[in-house]
Design a protein around this nucleic acid. Structure first.
Lengths: 300, 300
DNA sequence: TCCATTCGATACTTCCTCGGTATCAATCCG
DNA sequence: CGGATTGATACCGAGGAAGTATCGAATGGA
């Protein structure tokens, strides 16, 4: 028994006529008749009552017809689905992203992608940039939104936005009144920043910025989350350099100031070049076509 | 694509080794390899990543594996179920029965049969004897419990019980005090009985019994249901001849009396000899083995 | 009542598919 | 560097499946 036998059986069960059923199966009547008796012989079950004038289903045949229809439908969808998965229109995509992106890029990205590929189940993994990198390498993520690294040949990357650091300080801090803020102004300030093990790109940018003014930064606190940093600044415990995209809704206790020659960095979509998930390519296609439509409006 | 291809695919997906998978399919490696590439070519989807040393599933392959397992399981159960239906261990059985049987025979019959054939769905149809006869002929019922007719060559019948008529009368009725009741005692009585169109066997029995005493029966009321008959007798509206099996729990207002030469009749299980439902035979087998076990205890 | 038509079953032939054997190519291990 | 393992390829032979021709039974109309 295989699915062809089932289709032959269904054809006869639906027409109750050997000749017409054979025609539907694109074969002539004699081999069709043989196949029917072969099916009945293999199953050991009489599926049709037939004299030389009439054909009708037995009770067992009626039950079998219902089963066959269901099995054949499942069979066909399985064969179709595997192609959809291979073409990236079906399946699942494990998307990692850092906290920053959750507020600026991820919501729109997820919405647009879900609309474009409704049959791809998006699995969202919020994490810190270093973990995202390792999860991409280990294959625990298919694709991620994170900071762009200067050199990452094993990753296919696409810039989603360009962000820059700005200073936030308590409203009553001396720097809050300064006209412009440069690296030298950070001398002696208690800095608050996430540790390098969490966001190496940001830490490196802060370090380079300070060094440009000949300043050795003094990190008073090193919480992991940017929101914790903002809270600590609100409490007057220091100043911080954070991405501009996070400088909204800070409240009255904190002011944000642009920096002279502010360090810039990319927020990118990236995935291993070795990725075997076809859905990865479709997400890249989406963000690329997205840029195409409104190239200038997407910078932070 | 057919199920054999799916089994070949599953074999390789589970072993990830062409040689072992081929052995599991009882074939040698070269044709097995050919089948795999044939499958991939037909679907147009690469299911395995393989270099000459390692085999691994692609993402599409993983999805397809899950689908194939489900489809194959459904396929196999469909092929098995059709045999079960043909052998009468699975399917459905439309069992008709008259009201009388609902109190004496049906409960035990249903319980025993459900235990013996748990995969047969019993559809119970309570009806009146004449309707049961026509529904059996029209194929709306597979089998029924009803009164035995003297001549019914188109039906396979098996006697389940032998019942007899007895008299019920209001407790204050003169006949309630009689020592024995015979047909002559019914002269002038208001009889209550179901019409011949509902239970021809009972009406015929009553008519013959009265005729034996030279009495022309006077039917005061002709309700369809035996319980209505009993209620009317309770209200003092007449007397009735009803099956002995119904003479339990009549209440204090009614007394039941045995009749001299009481008319007897069979309660039978019957099905059309032309029935195509294999479950019919299994129910006959059950009641026959049932009699075998306790032949003497089953008479009413 | 008889003949024509319809429909499913059977006999025989042909062809194609599928599996087996032998072999090759690439990779891994000692 | 050589043997062993593993998958791919080439070729051959057998079995099965489809097609053609035909038969037999049943129905319906003249």
């Amino acid at each position: 028994m295989d699915t062809r036998h089932m289709r032959i059986f269904v054809a006869l069960a639906e027409t109750l006529h050997f000749g017409q059923a054979a025609a539907r199966m694109n074969m002539s009547q004699p081999p069709f008749s043989r196949q029917i008796s072969s099916i009945e012989k293999t199953l050991g079950v009489r599926l049709f009552d037939r004299n030389s004038r009439n054909v009708s289903l037995t009770l067992a045949g009626r039950h079998f017809l219902a089963d066959c229809r269901r099995v054949l439908a499942d069979f066909d969808t399985a064969c179709r689905d595997v192609q959809l998965v291979a073409n990236g229109v079906k399946g699942e995509l494990r998307l990692g992203f850092m906290m920053h992106a959750a507020h600026s890029i991820i919501p729109a990205l997820v919405r647009r992608y879900s609309e474009a590929k409704p049959d791809i189940h998006l699995i969202l993994e919020e994490s810190i940039p270093t973990d995202i990198d390792t999860m991409l390498i280990e294959g625990k993520l298919d694709i991620a939104v994170t900071f762009g690294s200067p050199y990452a040949p094993h990753l296919r990357t696409h810039r989603l936005a360009r962000d820059r650091l700005c200073l936030i300080a308590p409203a009553d801090h001396p720097l809050a009144a300064a006209e412009i803020v440069g690296p030298r102004d950070l001398r002696g300030e208690k800095l608050i920043a996430a540790p390098a093990s969490v966001v190496p790109v940001l830490r490196a940018a802060i370090g380079i910025y300070c060094a440009a003014g000949g300043v050795v930064p003094h990190f008073a606190f090193e919480p992991r989350l940017q929101h914790t940093i903002i809270r600590l600044v609100q409490e007057g415990l220091g100043v911080a350099l954070i991405p501009q995209s996070l400088c909204t809704g800070l409240g009255p206790a904190v002011i944000a100031k642009a920096l002279v020659n502010a360090p810039e960095f990319d927020v990118v979509l990236c995935a291993p070049t070795t990725s075997r998930n076809p859905a990865v390519a479709t997400l890249f296609e989406l963000v690329e076509s997205w840029d195409m439509g409104n190239a200038s409006t997407r910078n932070a």
